[in-house]
Amino acid sequence: MENNHVHVTAPSSARVGLLSVMAAGLFWGTGGLAGALLAERSGIEALAVAGYRLLIGGGLITAWLVFSGGLRALRTGPAGRRRLLVIGVVAAVFQACYFAAVELISVSLATLVTLGSAPLLVIVGESMIGRRRPAGRMTAAAGVALAGLTLLVGGPGDTSSGSVAAGAALALVSGGGFAVMTMLAARPVAGLPVLPMTGLAFCLGGLVVLPAGIVAGNAAVELQPVNIALLVYLGLVPTALAYTLYFAGLRSVPTGVASLIALLEPLTAAVLGALVLGDRLGPVGISGAVLVGVAVILVSNGESTTSGRTRRRRVAAARRQS
Rank of each mutant, 00 (worst) to 15 (best):
L264S: 08
A242H: 09
Y243W: 14
P238R: 09
A216M: 04
L277I: 00
V237A: 15
G282R: 08
L236F: 14
G235W: 07
V296H: 09
L298D: 01
L245G: 05
A219Q: 07
M197K: 01
N227Y: 08
A212F: 10
N227T: 08
M183L: 14
A219V: 07
G199Q: 02
V189H: 09
V253A: 10
L195I: 12
A274P: 05
V271F: 11
L184D: 03
G235I: 01
A240F: 12
L245P: 05
V232N: 07
L267H: 10
T268V: 12
G278K: 01
L207H: 02
V253E: 09
A248E: 14
G191F: 08
T255P: 02
S259P: 09
L272V: 01
A201H: 03
T255I: 00
M197R: 09
I261F: 04
V257L: 02
M181Q: 15
V271C: 02
A229Q: 08
S304H: 10
G191K: 08
S252Q: 07
A269H: 06
V215I: 13
A248P: 00
R280V: 12
G308P: 02
F247A: 11
N301D: 00
G293F: 12
I297V: 15
V253T: 10
V294R: 06
M183T: 03
P193K: 04
V292N: 03
L263R: 10
E303V: 04
A240W: 11
L264G: 14
V290C: 04
A185L: 06
G205L: 03
G282S: 08
S287C: 13
L281E: 00
G217V: 09
L291A: 14
L210K: 10
A258C: 12
L298S: 13
T305C: 00
L231C: 14
L298T: 14
R251F: 01
A289V: 03
L245S: 04
P254S: 13
A185F: 04
Y233N: 05
V237S: 13
P225R: 11
S252H: 14
A270M: 02
N227P: 09
V180T: 15
Y243T: 12
T306A: 14
I214R: 10
G308I: 03
D279F: 00
G282Q: 06
V257C: 02
T305R: 15
L241S: 08
L231T: 07
Y246A: 10
P225Q: 09
L210H: 06
L236H: 07
V194S: 03
